[in-house]
Simulated assay, not measured.
Amino acid sequence: MTDVTKGDAPSGQEESGLPANAESPNADPLPHARFTLDGVPEKERYDLWRDSISCIFEVEAERDIRQGPFEASIDANLFGSIMLARTQTLEQRWSRTPALMAKDGMDHYMIQVYEHGDMLWETQEGTRSFPKHGLVIFDLAEQVVTRTNNFSNLSLFIPRTMLDEQLKDRGNQHLRVLTAEEPMVHLLRDHMVSLKSLSSQMTARQAVEISPATIGLAAACLNAVISPDDPRQSSGASMARMTIVRRLIEANLGNPELTVDWITGKVGLSRTKLYELFEQLGGVTKYIRERRLRRALIMLTDKASAHLSIYDVAMEASYASDAAFVRAFRARYGVTPGDVRAAGHRLLVAEGLKTRGVDRRHEAWVHDL
């Protein structure tokens, strides 16, 4: 995925039958990409940054910030199948829109900790801010709008499939706030900080070895921490029922019989109780539609599904026709399935991804996790 300089073979390899200058995979350095605007003309800096960060977010900044001595950097490392990146930049507005989600097809969790600066976002309960030394979890398959002042943060990107299998409450993590008073939050935060500070000393092999432990620690933190101030946190019994129903839905997204009545018959809930469980998510029918369209989006951007036609994808998403599927997909994401398929976003090439000499490999890395 990236050019890495081979380390010299350790002494004594002649005795093991390897020549002294043999390349050792254990000595390959940890993949590292650094996006910086150093050397870029001032008038071009913001536009280059906005184009690069659009791999995850659409950004906006005030005119004086855009036209001033704009600064931004991303220092990213690949730890096997996950990515950890430090971002530093100026005050901006950030959004992840349906059109952007359709464009990139990412299905990751992003866990953030702020080293300095702050982030604000609106909820039904009012404006929330990033907890000092705490964590916030983003589901990159969900919409979000935030704003920040000048900041530095760490972002841990974990593919959904790698974290979901360890979570007790899948699909209810978006914008979940975890405060630093919780010891598990402290552990995960310190682990992220330590990984980044030690990244220059680690090898690619060590990074692969630490990846499962990092994902396990993230899952343990999310499972163990209860956020009583978060209105989305239900009672234990309700959470357990919600988890059962969600897993049933995920396992049957391609089943045309997946309806409210079918679900109530399978889990033994009344229609009223089922509606109550999904009320904060916009209703169970909307939730099923969203998950089916999300599944279709992943298929359209996944190289493993490139052989499937749009009609095949529509059938997999339980649509009666490709025309109905296209209408629903366009209404949700603002583009057609054909637009997404033609863009081929998962075919990004990580090697040599540069503009005006700026290292932009992080863009391909985060998409290809």
Rank of each mutant, 00 (worst) to 15 (best):
S95A: 15
N255R: 09
R346I: 00
T336C: 09
D302C: 04
R332N: 07
V335H: 06
R330N: 00
D322Y: 09
R176P: 11
N255V: 08
D8C: 06
H367N: 12
N21I: 02
Y109G: 01
K43V: 12
G68C: 05
L274C: 04
E115C: 02
V225R: 01
L297P: 00
D261Y: 04
L281E: 15
V40W: 13
M119D: 04
R241D: 15
S24V: 11
R346M: 13
H174Q: 09
N77D: 08
S194A: 11
V177N: 01
D368A: 11
N223S: 09
I226F: 09
E257T: 03
R160Y: 07
V267K: 10
R247E: 15
L253A: 03
G105W: 11
D8M: 08
A72C: 05
R356E: 15
I288P: 00
M162L: 15
S270P: 07
L188P: 07
R205P: 00
Y109T: 02
C221L: 00
S238W: 01
A304K: 15
N21S: 12
I215P: 01
C55V: 14
F35P: 09
P231E: 05
R246P: 03
M1Y: 05
L297C: 00
Y109K: 03
E125C: 01
M1S: 08
T36I: 09
V225E: 05
H362Y: 13
R289W: 07
T127W: 15
E58K: 14
A180F: 13
A33P: 00
G17M: 10
L293E: 06
D230W: 04
F329W: 10
A317Y: 05
G39I: 08
P231K: 10
R346S: 15
A323L: 07
D302M: 08
H32G: 09
L348T: 14
A207Q: 07
R295I: 01
R241Y: 09
M1G: 10
R271D: 03
N255G: 02
P228S: 04
W365V: 03
G12K: 14
V267E: 08
L297A: 13
T87D: 07
E42G: 10
L154T: 06
S194F: 09
E44T: 06
G39P: 00
S234P: 00
R96C: 05
L353F: 05
E23S: 07
N223L: 08
A9I: 02
V267W: 05
F329H: 05
D368N: 15
S321P: 07
L269H: 08
R295D: 00
I53Q: 13
T2K: 13
S73F: 00
A27L: 07
S197E: 12
Q201Y: 14
R170M: 02
A61H: 14
Q67D: 15
V335Y: 01
T203C: 03
V136E: 01
A102Y: 06
L135E: 01
R50F: 04
R232Q: 11
I111N: 05
H174W: 03
V40N: 10
R93K: 13
R93L: 06
D104I: 13
T123Q: 08
M239I: 02
R66L: 05
Y114T: 11
V4N: 01
S52L: 04
Y287N: 14
F329C: 01
R189I: 04
R50D: 12
T285F: 02
M202E: 03
L154K: 09
R66C: 13
V136C: 14
T355P: 01
L140F: 15
L18Q: 12
G283K: 12
F151I: 08
R294S: 09
T179W: 02
